[in-house]
Design a protein around this nucleic acid. Sequence first.
DNA 1: AACCGTAGCAACCGCGCTAAT
DNA 2: CATTAGCGCGGTTGCTACGGT
Length: 321
Amino acid sequence: MGRAPCCDKASVKKGPWSPEEDAKLKSYIEQNGTGGNWIALPQKIGLKRCGKSCRLRWLNYLRPNIKHGGFSEEEDRIILSLYISIGSRWSIIAAQLPGRTDNDIKNYWNTRLKKKLFGKQSRKDQRQQQHLARQAAAAASDLQIKQEASRGANEADGLAAGANYTWHHHHAMAVPVHPMSAPMVVEGGRVGDDVDESIRKLLFKLGGNPFAASPAPPCIPPPPMYEEAPSFVPPLAHGVPLNEGGMQCSSVLPALELDENFHFNHVKLDGLECLFGMGDHQNMRWNEVSPLVCPNNAVASSSQGMQQYCLVEEPADLGMQ
DNA sequence: AACCGTAGCAACCGCGCTAAT
DNA sequence: CATTAGCGCGGTTGCTACGGT
């Protein structure tokens, strides 16, 4: 059985909003709020619009303090950083950028930022990039593993114990040197030729293995709701062979392990697989990646925290959810 | 000047999730 | 516990403006 339509499509107006409709909706919501029911709202104010359409119009354009266009470099950086970490969770990304909407950011990403970063590439080029990125990542990780080994031999024990194993531990070992610093050769030159200089700077700010270099976030135990989820088993427990330093040999986080361990909260890293040397089906869990996004933020790694995180900036006085 | 291709953006669509019944 | 209604999200579509030929 199909899903019941949210409104009568035949009697509902579609397409661009007129100034009159905008004014009606805006003045009503500013005075009365949404009343907690978007579906009923258009009828109340005599708009021949679907409730979902009203909601979208309000959230994306009529809501106070909405910004359009003119994304700053800082905003670019935040978007990029979050996209790398959590994928296309536009609403979460939007929550970090006051005045920006998920739709706006999504459009910005799809139409501009992505092109700025990667330029236009054929699938063949993308595959080649991924291959090269993996090679560079492997080399970088080997070096890093040795550094890790000399820094503190005890960590391996800690990992094996598992109890306090957190994303950043794993991540420090797993994340390759930033792929944009690796040579990305395409036909007729380097991919970087297409990349806007400012964005390249952004990438380097983020890159050069930014995660390993950043101070470790506080270790926060998983929230109760994840207790039944498969624990984030340290790679050592999977019987991954060790190198001569006693550390795990994997160059980057092995694709298989990623697949096994990050199978909740699926996140699509469309177009950015090469950043992690992943295949295109690997996923991450929010509670593991969030320390990257907000390492010093109190919400850290919990989906509960994520919700709090998302609610920032939401107008509380307008009956919004 | 006309045509065509592309980019950017606004809006729609469909699905998953959740609260209410 | 099952069903239903509504919300919210991400993906997609379609329109418009603009630039190139």
